[in-house]
Design a binder for these strands. Structure first.
Lengths: 340, 340
DNA sequence: AAAACAAATCGAAACGTTTCGATAAATTTC
DNA sequence: GAAATTTATCGAAACGTTTCGATTTGTTTT
C-alpha cells in the first residue's frame, strides 16, 4: 500500500512537504508541487481517508438512517436532505438499521464516524440516540419525539392530517367511518388516529366497531380489511393509516364484490407514487416529504454552527383529493353501527 | 473527547489492557474487564471508528453507489445486496454520485474508505473505477460493461429482454411496433433495442419511422410519444425502454383519445412497483433485481476471498404478461408504415 | 556585503486505536 | 519451597495523515 511517505521519498522531499503539496496549500512552491503530484501519479497514490479524519477530527459526512433502505416512501425525503447536505459541502450516506445492535446504523453512530445524523427509523432506540448525540454530532429524529441534548425533532402534523381527512369524509356525509391504523409503536399512526377521533368527537360520532391495526404494509391492510368486512355491519368509508395499507384494502374490497368509491370511500395517508395510478386514484394525505428532508438537514447544520434552534418542528400536511371518495349511497344510517 | 486513554487512567490500568478489555479479548481477567467497562460507562466513552480502521486496515464496509439515492427502481436490488452483505458480517452504506467529482461516491472510492463497492450508476467514470478497484477493494459494476483488474460485471440480459418482448408482440400479430428508448449513454437501453431489432429482422420487418429516444423518465416518455403520434401513420404497438417512460406514454395516448390496449398495445421494461397498478396493468419485462443484488454482493465477497471468479455475469429476464397488449384491431396493415 | 525579512522546506509531535514482545504476578509442578 | 509454567498486565511501536515550530534557502533592504 503506497502512502504519502512513499510519495515524498520518490519525489525527494520531506513527508510534510508532500502533504502540503497534495492538499493544495500555498506554502509550497509550484515546482515542488508539480514534482510531488507527478510522483503521486506514478505510484498511483490514494490517500487514506481515515488517517485524515482522525487527524482532522471531523468527517464532513451526515448519516441518514432509514428503517429499510428500500421502500417507496423515502424518495422525496432523501432528495431533500441530499440537496441541502451537498450544498453545505458535506457528504450524505444512507444506511439501515437492519441487523439490530450489529447494524450499520449502530456502528456509525456509536463509533463517531459521522458529524451528524438524520434518523427516520423506529428501530433505533432512544437510548442509542441520546448516547450518540453530542457536540459535534447533532441528530435530527423524524416522525417521532425524542428529547435530549443535541437532538431535534421534525415531523408532519399527523394529528392535523388525521383530522382533516376525517372531516373531509364527514363533509361528504359519511358517519360510519372506519380506521385501520399502523402498528402501535408508530407515533405517526397514533397521531393520525388522534386526529381522526377528534373529528368524530366533534360530530358526536362514537365508533367502537371499526378500529383495527395492521402493520403499514399492503398485506396488513388486506387482512385487516377482510376481518372488518366479515362483520355484519359495514362502514361507508375507511381511513387507512398509510397508502400501502389502502392498496391492500382495495384488493380486499374487490374480493368482497364491493367497489370504490360507490360502496365504500377510501382515504389513505402519505401520497406515495402509486397512489395516483390506482384505480380509482386514491384520495390521500400528503406529507411534505421533500420539505421535511430539507428541514432536517438544515437543522443539523444549524446545530453544528452552534446556533440555538427550536427543538421540535411540525410541518403542515395537505389533503389530496382524487376519486376514491364520494358521498355514501344511502342516507347515512344513523344509529346503526354506532354505540354510545 | 474521552478516549481509551482516559478510560484506562480512570480504571487504573494500562492503555493496552483497556483496549483488550473493551474489545472482549480473553487475555484479560474478568474482574479487570468489569473495571474497565465500568469506567467506560461512567465516562460515556465512545470508540473512534477511524482510529480502529486505520490500525486494522480494513473497514468491513461495502459501498453501494446509485445514480440517485431515491427512485423506485432500486428497492429490490438494495434488499438483495443488503442481505448478503449483512450475513457476511459487513456493513452496507449507500450514496449517490450527485455532485460530480466532489460527490460522496468519489470521496469514498478514492480515499479507500470501503472494502468493496457495487456501482449502479452511469455517472461514475471508468477511469475512477479502474483507479479505485484494487486488491482489498473489488468493485462490481451493474448494467454496464467495464474491464479491469478487480472489476466484475453483473447485468440483466437486456438483449434477450428486448427480443422476447418484441417476439411477444409479433406473436400477437403486430408488425408496426415502435421503439421509444432511453438515453444513448445507457448500455442497457442499447441492448434492449438490439434485441428488439433482432426480433424484427427475423420477421423481415424494417422499421425506420418509429424509433425515438427519451431519457428514462415519465416526462421523456410522454414527449416522445406525443411526437410520434403527430406523425401521419401510427404503430399498433409501442415498446418502451423502461416502465416510467411507458407511464408517460399512457398519458400521451390518453390525450390523443387512444386507448390501451384497444388502439395501441404497450410493453414496458423493469417491472417497477407501479406497473401492476396502472390501468390497464402494464405488460413489461422484469429484471431479476433481487437476484442481481445478491449476485453482486456475492461476487464482491468471493473476490475478497481471492477466489477466481468469472468476470461477467448476465442474468435471465422474464416477460410479465398483464393487460396492456392485445392483437391489433385491424388485420395487420402490411406494407404500410414500413419501408425496405 | 552584511542585515533583515520572506518564502520554502523540514522534523517531529500529535490523532486514538490495536497488537507485539516483555515483564510481573499467579499458579502449578517436582 | 525453588523452578517451571501459565496467566495477566504493561510499555511501546505502529497505522497514515496533518500541522506546529524550527530551520534552511532565497530575496530584498540598508
Amino acid at each position: 500500500m503506497v502512502t504519502i511517505k512513499d510519495v515524498a521519498k520518490h519525489a525527494g522531499v520531506a513527508l510534510s512537504t508532500a502533504s502540503y503539496a497534495l492538499s493544495g496549500s500555498d506554502k509550497v512552491s509550484p515546482k515542488t508541487r508539480e514534482l510531488v503530484l507527478q510522483a503521486a501519479k506514478e505510484l498511483n497514490y490514494q490517500k487514506n481517508g481515515f488517517a485524515m479524519d482522525l487527524k482532522r477530527k471531523s468527517t464532513k459526512t451526515i448519516l441518514l438512517i432509514l428503517s429499510d433502505l428500500s421502500g417507496p416512501y423515502y424518495s422525496e425525503l432523501i432528495r431533500g436532505t441530499q440537496e441541502v447536505t451537498l450544498s453545505n459541502g458535506f457528504d450524505l450516506i444512507a444506511c439501515s438499521s437492519v441487523g439490530g445492535a450489529d447494524s450499520t446504523a449502530y456502528k456509525f453512530l456509536q463509533e463517531r464516524r459521522v458529524d451528524g445524523a438524520i434518523v427516520l427509523d423506529p428501530n433505533i432506540s432512544e437510548h442509542l440516540l441520546r448516547e450518540s448525540a453530542r457536540e459535534g454530532c447533532p441528530i435530527v429524529v423524524m416522525d417521532r419525539y425524542v428529547e435530549g441534548d443535541f437532538i431535534m425533532n421534525v415531523a408532519a402534523d399527523n394529528v392535523q392530517g388525521g383530522y382533516e381527512a376525517t372531516r373531509y369524509l364527514i363533509g361528504q356525509g359519511h358517519r360510519d367511518i372506519a380506521w385501520i391504523g399502523g402498528p402501535s409503536n408508530s407515533l405517526g399512526s397514533q397521531h393520525r388516529k388522534e386526529g381522526y377521533l377528534k373529528a368524530l368527537q366533534e360530530e358526536g360520532i362514537v365508533n367502537t366497531k371499526w378500529m383495527l391495526v395492521g402493520n403499514f404494509t399492503e398485506e396488513g391492510g388486506y387482512h385487516s380489511t377482510k376481518v372488518m368486512l366479515m362483520q355484519e355491519e359495514r362502514p361507508t368509508a375507511i381511513f387507512y393509516g398509510n397508502d400501502e395499507m389502502a392498496i391492500g384494502g382495495y384488493k380486499a374490497l374487490r374480493e368482497f364484490g364491493l367497489s370504490v368509491p360507490e360502496d365504500v370511500s377510501i382515504v389513505g395517508f402519505d401520497d406515495i407514487q402509486v397512489a395516483e395510478y390506482l384505480s380509482p386514484p386514491l384520495t390521500t394525505v400528503r406529507q411534505p416529504k421533500y420539505e421535511m428532508g430539507t428541514m432536517a438537514a438544515h437543522l443539523v447544520f444549524q446545530a453544528m454552527g452552534g446556533e440555538y434552534v427550536n427543538k421540535s418542528y411540525k410541518l403542515k400536511i395537505e389533503l389530496i383529493e382524487r376519486l376514491s371518495c364520494q358521498p355514501p349511497r344511502l342516507a347515512p344510517n344513523r344509529g346503526k353501527g354506532m354505540e354510545t
